[in-house]
Design a protein around this nucleic acid. Structure first.
Lengths: 205, 205
DNA sequence: AGAATAGTGTCTCTCAGACATTATTTG
DNA sequence: CAAATAATGTCTGAGAGACACTATTCT
């Protein structure tokens, strides 16, 4: 067993200003980087990921999943985590949100890592409940649809979207309404007991 | 950046005796373990994975993909690779194949890691060309179907299977036939130029 | 009353699954 | 010619996508 340089990085997404955002830290003069933290022997990789976010988030308020481990000659080994958090103004001074469609200059291979995380997010959206991790506990169907549209980068049909989501029985009505400019919308909540597993058989779509 | 214990492990699957096999090394008296190797600073993680297999396989004769990185307090960090190789008698004395449905006692959490790798294999089979990595270059449609059946653990309908595989245009005929006890079967080969990407839209199947 | 947003149903087409018979070769 | 395996097509039901109007609230 050898001694090795090992760090944990995090690609943390959230939604605000009707766009998908990623959290970055300033690196040097005018470059940015994914938050990271050296691994410690006495904590789990997930705990290290939370430390990389300056302890701003508790484990149970973000969705956290391992993305990939990058490593090789002439490079530290980086275990990269993929994370989602609902819209959130709180942030450490060092941690800024940037629209993923308008990223600043990034160090190393961080642009490719973000691109990969975004592909994974788009993919997960279609077979898992990941989308709900970006929304508050109660949300309207229109908000949910906007979330999907922003991430997928395409518009979706309102009736088909509602039908699929409701048929999947993955959300349930609440008794609350959200008022606004027009007719108030019913609020829904995610059913954590919902089965969100892949059942379809697809041989080479 | 901290110094850390880091190893690479490999779950290598192959097919023989009409069953899925995994390669294990003997660990102590009567326990077995996944092959592993300490990471070196001057090589890639994939190279380390090949070394864990005693250098028995060249990079281009096996399918190799990162599976997951396990780590945490009171445990070395293990980058685990998932690998596939066609049926193959060659093996180092230390490296033995075991049927995955009749595994011996395993050290640590290796049984869970194999179970996870098997889930990944089953899943990949349905949307990627992973199945072909377990077969020789040329194969009959019946052999391909058996491969799927062994891994998925269920029988498949012959006509539907052939239709889906052929409609996907992922394999092509060769001019060769394989004789045997009954009518000879046409041999097919994988089309490496085939597009095997996920295109279907699935919201919560 | 008009502006704004929420909410709802049908038709069509494609794809997946169930299912049985004919064709070719060997001994 | 019998045994063994290869190869082939149709029907049916479910789900995905296209598509437009009514309902409720606020000002």
């Amino acid at each position: 067993m050898s001694e090795h340089l090992l760090e944990v990085r995090v690609v943390l997404f959230s939604l605000s200003e009707a766009a998908l955002q990623v959290f970055l830290i300033r690196q040097g003069e005018n470059a940015w980087a994914l938050p990271s933290c050296p691994a410690r022997e006495n904590e789990s990789l997930e705990e290290t990921a939370l430390r990389a976010l300056y302890g701003e988030f508790e484990r149970n308020e973000i969705y956290l999943e391992q993305l990939y481990t990058y490593g090789g000659p002439a490079r530290a080994v980086s275990v990269v985590y993929f994370a989602l958090v609902p819209h959130n103004e709180r942030r450490a001074a060092e941690l800024c949100q940037h629209r993923v469609d308008r990223l600043p200059a990034l160090t190393g291979d961080h642009a490719e890592i973000i691109a990969y995380a975004l592909r994974r997010l788009r993919y997960k959206l279609e077979y898992s409940a990941a989308g709900f991790e970006l929304l508050p506990q109660e949300f309207t169907l229109t908000e949910l649809q906007r979330t999907y549209e922003i991430i997928l980068g395409e518009t979706l049909d309102k009736r088909n979207f509602r039908r699929r989501i409701l048929d999947a029985k993955i959300i349930e009505e609440t008794q609350h309404l959200r008022g606004g400019e027009g007719r108030p919308a019913r609020l829904y909540r995610y059913r954590p007991d919902a089965v969100a597993e892949v059942k379809t058989r697809r041989l080479f779509p």
